[in-house]
Design a protein around this nucleic acid. Structure first.
Lengths: 241, 241, 241, 241
DNA sequence: AATGAATGAGTGTTCATTCAT
DNA sequence: GATGAATGAACACTCATTCAT
């Protein structure tokens, strides 16, 4: 039984093992998952596993990295949008909703990763917590600086932006993890909207306008966010302020 | 060398071992903590440990129970206050702040417990997750029904109360765990106030009044909540009752 | 909870613990029975147990002794009868049947003891095997010397008496243990008769006479063995030979 | 220091460990034998043991199976001989003696196995007793049906065949285990002959013929059983076939 | 590159026994 | 005499990791 298997490239093989590991970890948890479980699931030998990953901890860290690389990409892309919307005027709420939607969708579409990151990675090995909190602080920092930017343009109130960023991510992840762990069906767009309503009201300077837009949004659910052009056209009056 | 040590009462010894276990679990995590670590730390023998706890899982579940019994007591006590405040009129914001303060203080004063519950208990043994999510759902349900009550009295907007409750607890715990895990000093009362502001604005029907009260609160930090008598005197006019 | 219990005499208490131990050992086996099981069953404390028995091995040896003391008494009593019968003439078959009956009844009436001795005592601690085989050899020796006596009077054939004694006890115990371990009903007298028939034919010098007596016995089942007087009267002709 | 030792094939290694285990179990008994004892004796690591056997119980059950597989093979082979002899006429006594000889030799040549099965396997784990009594009942059943066949041909008397089978196996094993456990020399052929004499007399219809053959047998010890051809030639007269 | 037999430190758990009260 | 809290050696078993093939 040696060398029989069709030669995959290093990358393919590594990807394959990583994917299986995600499934097994999500199902059984880090501690309860043995290397044996992973190699059995992936159909490779123990030796092969150690060709690609230096130890059990290593593959878990790679999974954490994978999650945050994808997440960071998403955040960065949306951060650009948010900035455009801000410069485009008050319609940033739509951008925000869009942002929230993508965030929720991302987790809904990666339930195993989500489960592993927020239910398993913390409180196990010190190395996981460290890696994780580095990433989390980074994400929160990005969000906090967006909030600062909004506050500077008087679109939201002055407050402790780091704390507010923590509130927003805490609120979002609480509900995301709740639904991801549950089998129940859920209207992810509705929940994204609820979060946007919640935090836009919480932080808005001009609540009247916010309420008006939210009302419109709610009517338009499933919500089509306006295109950038729409936004530009729609809200010229606020100016760049 | 058997049966030598001075016999404590069952309760004393159990309490002692439980306390040591809390420290060790908080420091090393459930999986990385061996029964040996606990008994060494407590200065008792392996056998003694198993007199009091049927297995490693058992002592961890007892810790989870301990946390939630204390928490439930706190929640129940404050729930009464909230209801009194509601029936007393608009001053419920003070009650809410008070509620938040106690919640934050409770966790600040039990950092190990907090860390164990929110960083370690989930995603390990299925029994932990089960126990934990039972409790969490219960707590959230209590909060949701308070929100409903407020909404019925038109003090807050209509919304999905369960989702909102999740937002609030998610936001609160995110920041609590952040600070508890950090060694940094932090002004717990400030953070409690930030949360109250955040969510009272997010949910308020009458934002003007809320903003006024919040401003007063903020000036008065460290915030003395008015006594019940004050509240009764202060706001008889709303009298929805 | 100290010293509350009605003071039994040493002997009563010891007897009580011993009895409970017999039940527990029979149910769970020596190795699987903990001292805890015994004291719980007896409703006494661990300490009390060690007042009466020096260790777990000790109580088991006491049980072995108990069995063999009772058995030896039975064997001795019957040995006398056999001898009387021999001197009384050919009617010793009745004595033998009687002997067998008592042997079978004894085990039927002490199923736990029987089970412990023949299913558990051997092959555990070396001390058990030693004690047991001492007793067994003794019993077998008694039987062998009875066979020798019969052979000398030409009532049975010349053979290796030790080996024959082993055959007889082996045959008897095989069927006894079989039925004791089973829940099935069984006609113990029938089986005793089968054994007597089997071995009296196997060893008889005068098969014709034996067959005649066996036939009579079988007709008379449930078999009333003749009294000693009957026997004396019935078979004077063979003389003391 | 891991994975260093030269790899044997699965079968070799398993066989090796099993053999060592037989020796250790026979010497110390099941309960008193630790897995450590076995692996030390076999010169392999703990881990290796668990590669081949799922638990301590498992290896013991495998030993029980090993014994009974060999025994069953022997019984089956001889059962055929017995049947041939029966159809060949009264010379079945020779077949029976042969049968007994092989049975006795088998146990003499496997003293550890014999000791484990009849001195240790019963009265320990329930699984052992179950397995064992299944096998024993099967063996006894085979013997009983042979007895029935003989009785139907009027070669032995009518009796309870199951009980008689129990007598025979009980008698045989009692003496076998006695001698196997002892260091004493013993003439196994003599004992086999004693058993055959004992039971052929006990069950014979025509004692006269049996006694004549036994006498011839005894003179011819070490007994050469006649070849099948001899038997065919010798006893054509009965010709039930 | 791939294999899987082998390793052994480490785990949770049991239980006969002791002895201060 | 009776108690039961305390002991700790011993156990069965696991699993991440190695390395000869």
């Amino acid at each position: 039984m040696r060398g029989r298997r069709r030669a995959l490239t290093r990358e393919e093989r590594e990807k394959q093992i990583l994917n299986e590991a995600i499934h097994v970890f999500a199902r059984k948890g880090y501690a309860a998952t043995s290397v044996n479980d992973i190699v059995e699931s992936a159909g490779v030998s123990r030796g092969t596993f150690y060709h690609y990953f230096s130890c059990k901890e290593d593959i878990f860290l790679r999974i954490i990295d994978l999650y945050f690389e994808n997440l960071t990409e998403l955040l960065t892309k949306n951060s650009v949008r948010i900035k455009r919307a801000i410069f485009g005027g008050g319609a940033f709420l739509y951008a925000w909703l869009d942002y929230a939607l993508e965030f929720f969708r991302f987790h809904r579409d990666n339930p195993q990763l989500t489960h592993i990151i927020y239910r398993q990675a913390m409180g196990q090995e010190a190395s996981f917590s460290k890696r994780l909190s580095d990433y989390v602080l980074l994400s929160r920092h990005i969000l906090a600086s967006e909030l600062r930017m909004l506050a500077e343009r008087n679109l939201i109130i002055k407050c402790d932006y780091d704390v507010s960023a923590a509130f927003i991510t805490g609120a979002a992840l609480e509900i995301i993890v709740h639904y991801v762990s549950t089998d129940k069906d859920y209207d992810m767009e509705r929940i994204a909207f609820e979060l946007v309503r919640n935090q836009s009201r919480a932080l808005a300077t001009d609540l009247g306008e916010v309420d008006r837009i939210l009302e419109k949004m709610e009517r338009g659910l499933a919500i089509k966010p306006p295109t950038l052009q729409d936004m530009m056209a729609q809200v010229p009056r606020t100016g760049t302020q």
